[in-house]
């Protein structure tokens, strides 16, 4: 059972929960840039939440399945179709053999995830399937997916096969997670070098709108918008950075470090996007202005725990729905 990349996307790779414990050697954790969407599609497809998935940006790959499969897609909305028929995001979908999954239009968001039930035959490196393109390790041969790649996945158990080129969208779905923030509002905690910024810079940071530039990638999102001025000159010794760290470049431009960030940096860390809002900033496109709102650690932690709770409910729900579904199938055969 294989899935075949019949058309390459521009930046599609295998990702999972990331590679932890090796930053001291300079190996960054990587992993899905929108971990929330990745976990959601995995749970819907009946997988462990941190199983490897295909992460895609637009234009995305076209994927051919030579055998029946259970899949879920979600994250960005790229107008997915199966054999020409639209398929919704965040539902489990049963598909027949010889089906073709395509993504027609980059409607909303930046990163879309494809989870396929069962094990994906990818390479595990240092405990993770995440693709590390620099070392060329992990994921699919340590590189982005190319036309002609044939990725095996394991046999499905218990689910009746769909007819060739047919699919069925199961009725249950994952509901989106909302918090009190406005759609374009990104909560941040101030960083250790916050006071390097001038008062005017602080005002601009908190009141003006910024947008993610076109040159952004998995490593970092550079922001377009007014420059942030510093109050003092600062020459820092390199130290550790994280996903969400907002660095201030010498010209006053900000860069938000994303999942593929380097382990260390020497630019002032003026703020950090809270963990619960990583999914939100990850999905922002160039045409969507964003505003920063400084929050406190209590709020950040509460939002994170709420998001985790949301996923726990989804996890329990999915395991119940899948076991019901399989039981019904057993009875009908």
């Amino acid at each position: 059972m294989n899935l075949k990349i019949i058309k390459a996307g521009i930046c599609d790779s295998i990702q999972d929960g990331g590679r932890h414990g090796f930053q001291y050697m300079g190996i960054n954790p990587g992993g899905a840039i929108d971990m929330f969407s990745m976990r959601t599609v995995n749970l819907l497809a009946g997988n462990p939440e941190y199983a490897p998935v295909i992460e895609m940006s637009f234009p995305a790959a076209s994927v051919f399945f030579d055998a029946p499969a259970i899949i879920a897609i979600g994250g960005a909305d790229f107008s997915a179709t199966l054999n020409g028929n639209p398929v919704p995001s965040f539902h489990p979908v049963l598909i027949g053999a010889n089906s073709t999954l395509k993504f027609e239009q980059g409607k909303e968001g930046r990163w879309c995830y494809l989870a396929v039930n069962g094990n994906m035959g990818a390479e595990k490196w240092l405990g993770s399937y995440s693709t590390h393109t620099k070392i060329e390790a992990g994921g699919w041969r340590g590189r982005l997916l190319k036309k002609g790649d044939i990725i095996p996945f394991t046999n499905l158990t218990g689910v009746q096969s769909m007819a060739d080129k047919k699919h069925e969208v199961l009725k249950w779905k994952a509901v989106p997670f909302y918090d009190d923030a406005l759609p374009n509002e990104i909560y941040v905690l101030t960083g250790n070098e916050w006071d390097y910024i001038s008062d005017d810079g602080k005002r601009i940071f908190g009141q003006e709108a910024f947008s993610v530039s076109r040159t952004s990638d998995r490593m970092g999102y550079t922001l377009d918008g007014p420059a942030i001025s510093t109050a003092t000159q600062c020459e820092l010794i390199s130290s550790v950075v994280d996903y969400g760290t907002i660095q201030l470049l010498p010209g006053g431009q900000m860069i938000v470090l994303m999942a593929g960030h380097q382990t260390t940096g020497g630019y002032p860390r003026i703020a950090h996007v809270i963990k619960a809002h990583r999914t939100k900033i990850a999905q922002l496109k160039e045409d969507k202005p964003l505003c920063f709102r400084i929050t406190d650690i209590q709020t950040a932690e509460q939002l994170f725990l709420k998001q985790e709770h949301h996923l726990t409910i989804l996890k329990n729900g999915c395991s119940m729905m899948w076991s019901d579904y399989l039981k019904k199938q057993c009875m009908s055969t």
Binding site: I237, V240, T264, F304
Partner: peptide, 21 residues
């Protein structure tokens, strides 16, 4: 705790808030 990373004059410790809660 997930991992710790030494630097020149600092050490950063990454933790899992879901476990520590």
């Amino acid at each position: 705790f997930i991992e710790c990373v030494p630097a020149y004059s600092s050490l950063t410790v990454f933790y899992n808030p879901g476990v520590l809660k």
